[in-house]
Write a protein that binds this DNA or RNA. Structure first.
Lengths: 216, 216
DNA sequence: CGGCCCTTTGACGGACGTCAAATAGCGTGG
DNA sequence: CCACGCTATTTGACGTCCGTCAAAGGGCCG
């Protein structure tokens, strides 16, 4: 996989409009099927699905370069809510223009297939994690995955990175309650594996954290 | 969605070979990336991912007409184990031939995109179920989903249908233990909602079962 | 400065897992 | 056809993990 998470789509010669949205606001409504496809340019967002009673599950966190819903590029796909976590800027592309371009350049189409399969593989792994791993494992894995995702963008791997998630975001990503997330994060910090302060996270003991996460 | 779960692919003029495999045998190894794509012709199979220590999660049950891993049609996708539950017959198509045909007929390609997104949507829903629903909800939903899946194939909706799953299959699909599955199934039966006997299942009280399942 | 959300902590409860034993079913080979 | 052995199912006792509830700070923004 390349270092550009969108497969280079954002660098293509297609018309787009730039938008800015404050934290906590919706970027995509679950019922919406617009003619536009957004790509995140700055900030963090999350894609989730929800039950009528408010329970919800985060499917993926979106960082700069991520296409909001890869699957929606070529065929309708709805039900996902996309919400800004920090302030987010994003670019809206016309779906039809992307589609035309993709079909004109089979190399890009192949890249899209790969991106699509990666998204599916992540969804399957998420199901495995939620069905078969315990709270500390899930949280440690989330931290390590986000650490890798951030590292891929900054091109350097640092122990400390920007971490704007609230504990309720972590809870909705791991199928836990915010209270329990707080307890586990406290344990991980007291054990000297990580440190969270301000809006950034430091991995202090990577190998121990990986052991807890049952990594790879 | 059409009544043919593979979007009509199995009726296409492509060379294929027919295979038969006994229950409990593997159809696709997790490391394998062959040049063939199997489509189930008879019997039940399951697609799952596993951890080294044996814990595993069923991602989908495959019934006649189902393509084994839609995503693998156009780009590599591995990690899934596909195992026969009953005796299974399936047809192996050459990946390259399917690919050529799909690109020659854009109507079929569009159908594939739709199948693709349906698979992704099911994976996301699975994550929501595993992360946010309780045991009885998960099991009731699995039963109702399978009932619909079977009904779509037989073209009639009957209260009783073929149900070859062992409780460990249900456990691996719902993220539970076989013991707990047994308890919940016992409750559902004592409550008069379902009856399981031999290798078939009867839905006795659909509306109650739907209520437990928090259906739709 | 005030209000709101977030985080932390503890006590308690419920859901689900683990362990174990008894029974039933099912396929295989004699 | 029966005997055997394996696997699946059922059930109960008990333990653990995680959720719920509640209260007390802490941080952030108007």
């Amino acid at each position: 996989m390349s270092k550009e998470a969108d497969g280079g789509l954002s660098a293509l010669p297609i018309a787009s409009t730039l938008h800015t949205i404050p934290a906590r606001r919706l970027i995509l409504h679950p019922k919406e099927w617009s003619e536009f496809v957004p790509i995140v340019c700055s900030g963090w967002a999350m894609s989730s699905i929800a039950l009528p009673d408010g329970r919800r599950q985060v499917i993926s966190f979106l960082l700069p370069g991520d296409i909001v819903s890869v699957g929606s590029l070529l065929a309708p796909l709805s039900g996902h809510t996309v919400e800004a976590i920090t302030e987010v800027t994003y670019r809206k592309f016309k779906r039809q223009e992307i589609k035309d371009l993709l079909f004109a350049r089979s190399d890009l189409l192949e890249r899209l297939f790969t991106l699509w399969n990666e998204a599916k593989a992540r969804a399957d792994q998420l199901a495995l994690d939620l069905g078969r791993r315990r709270a500390d494992e899930r949280i440690a894995r989330l931290i390590l995955r986000l650490s890798e995702k951030v590292a891929k963008r900054s091109l350097v791997r640092t122990q400390t990175f920007d971490f704007p998630l609230r504990q309720r975001h972590i809870a909705d990503a791991t199928g836990l309650t915010p209270v329990h997330v707080s307890k586990i994060l406290g344990e991980l910090q007291r054990a000297g594996m990580i440190e969270i302060s301000g809006r950034s996270l430091t991995i202090l003991n990577a190998s121990e954290l990986q052991r807890v996460a049952d990594w790879r």
